[in-house]
Write a protein that binds this DNA or RNA. Structure first.
Length: 665
RNA sequence: GCACCCGUAGCUCAGCUGGAUAGAGUAUCUGACUUCGAAUCAGAGGGUCGCAAGUUCGAAUCUUGCCGGGUGUACCA
């Protein structure tokens, strides 16, 4: 029995006792982890709740300690329970039969549901406009999304990861305007430039980053150029013309660059759905028909929104300038972004009644394939895409309003699936401290300097580019590795430095909860000490090094059978240092419930914090117990088994965060 | 105006559906490498949980009001 199973049994026992003894029906039973192991392994503050309910039902005011005593006896008979104590004002503290629990769980998988072929869900993340390089804000999105899909897989879900490509939007059009009208380049010129950049070791997305900024500056004074933008956008949306072909090349090259950046961080995708196909395969028309038939939207014949198709949005009241209702089709007949997004969301849910065509886009180093949508109907064999039970959209919180409309829109079309099928996994932005912005060479006004943070802006070219930061992290890590393992080959050292850089960056972005604005600080982001990914990796590396040095007689199977001596193990656990051995084991056994909690609350930070706590606990355990030289055979076996439980939990936890454990560091 | 988010140690942040003495990291100071790896560990100081009411056995957590900061509220995406 795992902890989760024991807890469930205990909850059931509490519930039935409450009903049998006091005639009270408890809806939810709070089980908590006591602050110290001396106070037990699971605690139920249920007696206070019962006092209240009994008073409501009978008017009789009972003593909480008395009630706790009654419930206590029913919990003592549950399997794996050693003893139950009533503490404080009426807490029920349950102590496991610790030796038996360890013997039973010595070889248990930390994440027993991982890899199961459960229900299918979709996670959309990254979705960077393909007109420039990704910056640290985009990376927060990608790391959150990628970690969350790993968490879902760890709970047994089947997950499809999508990265939406807005290849026909204004941002791509802006860069195309730059190439065509500022740099006077044809598609062939751009292809040539691309080759030159590669030869110089520069990347296309960096070139576009700078060009996009220049276009933005030029727009401020050059009205003529601004007019070109609408022209280009129209051609790009329409397709089948030289401008669209050029835009497609630019967008695709940026997608390739961004995918390379993300692969450096162990972030992979299954599918790249593109806006161009949503347009050309007429997804909107299909969604539009359904929405009209169901009366979800209506045509506005008068007022400010005359000539538009709108969706009512009651929660939003509007203001003097705008109506509360959301326009989906403009008076000129074109569809807004939100309209297209509703059609896309319907496809994700499998309720649109249309599908994309697909072609193979790229095979990753690990052999995984990523597909891209196409309008070309000469479809090849492809895996099924879309049709998830739950759809998670990782999008920053500034887009909460349009996401609300999408969720309510699809729920109105499909009430049986409802709003709960669409989850906006929102998160706050990554901003720059005024100091960090100036460090990047941006001139700030006095007013800006007083602000708590400066928002990054792709348009202004203000941001920390992802590849730059990864490069700096790798260089710093390499210097550290050099100083410790100068005898290793360059390839090995670079490999370790890479793993450490990924660990540092991913952990840095995950330790904040989603609704905390990250004010980017170079010193903190580049740190390898304290609460960092590197700290967790180091702990796992040390654990592994113990197992490399195990004597043959102490192999893990031998140790596991040796701790079947429950009396001997109980004696050790009851001795002075016994409770921290147990603390280590019980903490490491809580990975599964932590992953469940992270999945249920859509909050990867819970797992990040747990991983750090686990690593810290292992460092302490490592420091306090000399495992290999312990003289007592049973105690040595116990220490080895507990260290093994801890290192496997730590490795699984890190893996779920997308962080690898190096061989050495 | 309206909606949402934030305010907890000098700084950066955790604190789960209300529960035991409010915790980490960092910075500062002090100790620990002849040891299974010191990218580590131990100890010290540091708190009117923005303010004020309310709900109750119990509030950092829930409710209301206020103060301060942020983000939305497009026929942009």
């Amino acid at each position: 029995m795992t902890i989760t199973e024991i807890q469930k049994t205990l909850r059931d026992a509490v519930k039935s006792t409450a009903l049998a003894e006091f005639g009270v029906e408890l809806e939810t039973i709070v089980a908590e982890t006591p602050p110290k192991t001396e106070l037990g392994d699971v605690a139920f503050p249920v007696a206070f709740e019962l006092v209240k309910l009994i008073k409501q039902a009978t008017g009789e005011k009972k003593n909480p300690r008395e009630i706790a005593e009654t419930v206590k006896s029913s919990l003592e008979t549950v399997e794996f329970v050693g003893k139950v104590e009533v503490a404080g004002a009426g807490y029920l503290n349950v102590f496991f039969d610790r030796a038996r629990f360890l013997a039973e769980n010595a070889a248990s998988e930390p994440l027993p549901n991982a890899g199961k072929d459960g229900v299918k869900v979709c996670v959309e993340h990254t979705s960077v406009n393909p007109n420039k390089a990704a910056h640290i804000g985009h990376v927060r999105n990608s790391v959150l999304g990628d970690t969350f899909q790993r968490i879902l897989k760890a709970t047994g879900k089947r997950v499809e990861v999508q990265n939406y490509i807005d290849n026909t939007g204004v941002q791509v059009a802006d860069v195309v305007v730059g190439f065509l009208f500022m740099q006077q380049m044809s598609l062939d010129d751009i292809k040539l430039l691309d080759k030159e950049l590669i030869a110089e070791g520069k990347s296309f997305d960096y070139h576009c980053w700078d060009l996009y900024t220049k276009v933005g500056v030029e727009y401020q004074t050059n009205e003529e150029l601004k007019e070109k933008r609408a022209e280009v956008l129209h051609l790009v949306e329409e397709g089948g013309n030289p401008t669209a072909e050029l835009a497609d090349y630019v967008a695709t090259r940026n997608v390739e660059c961004i995918l390379d950046t993300m692969e450096r961080l162990s972030i992979l995708y299954n599918l790249l759905p593109r806006e161009s196909e949503i347009l050309h395969l007429h997804f909107w028309n299909k969604a539009f028909e359904q929405m009209k038939q169901l009366g979800v939207i209506h045509y506005e014949s008068e007022g400010k929104q005359a000539g538009c198709w709108v969706m009512p949005f009651e929660e939003h009241t509007g203001n003097e300038d705008n109506e509360g209702d959301k326009i989906l089709v403009r008076s000129n007949g074109t569809v807004t972004y939100t309209g297209k997004d509703i059609a896309y969301q319907m496809w994700k849910l499998g309720i649109l009644g249309l599908d994309f065509n697909y072609k193979h886009f790229h095979t990753y180093k690990n052999g995984q394939d990523v597909w891209i949508t196409t309008a070309d109907s000469n479809a090849s064999e492809h895996p099924p895409f879309g049709g998830g039970e739950t759809i998670y959209n990782v999008i920053d919180s500034r887009q909460s309003y349009p996401q609300d409309i999408v969720r309510k829109g699809v729920a109105a079309i499909s009430p049986e699936r409802g709003e709960k099928a669409s989850i906006h996994l929102s998160y706050e932005m990554v901003a720059l401290s005024p100091a960090a912005a100036e460090e990047l060479g941006f001139k700030l006004s006095d007013e800006d300097r007083k602000r708590p943070f400066i928002e990054m802006s792709g348009r202004k070219g203000l941001g920390v580019k992802a590849d730059d930061l990864i490069n700096r992290l790798e260089a710093n890590a390499l210097a550290e590795v050099e100083s410790r393992h100068s005898d290793s080959t360059d390839e090995v050292k670079r490999g370790i430095a890479h793993q450490l850089a990924v660990g540092a960056l991913r952990y840095f972005l995950l330790k904040f909860t989603r609704n905390t604005v990250i004010v980017f600080d170079f010193k903190e982001a580049l740190s390898f000490e304290g609460e960092t990914g590197c700290f967790c990796q180091y702990s796992a590396v040390r654990a592994n090094s113990i197992f490399r040095k195990l004597a043959e007689k102490d192999n893990i199977d031998a140790c596991r059978s040796r701790i079947a001596d429950l009396g001997g193990v109980n004696a050790i656990l009851s001795a002075e240092t016994g409770s921290d051995i147990w603390s280590m084991a019980i903490l490491a056994s809580r990975l599964e419930e932590t992953v469940e909690a992270a999945a249920n609350t859509n909050e990867p930070a819970i797992l990040a914090k747990y991983t750090f706590t686990l690593a810290k606990a292992f460092n302490l355990f490592y420091h306090n117990h000399k495992i290999l030289i312990e003289a007592d055979d049973t105690k040595r076996a116990l220490l080895i088994v507990v260290a093994d439980i801890a290192r496997r939990a730590l490795t699984s936890a890190l893996d779920t965060l997308g962080i690898e454990v190096p061989e050495k560091m």
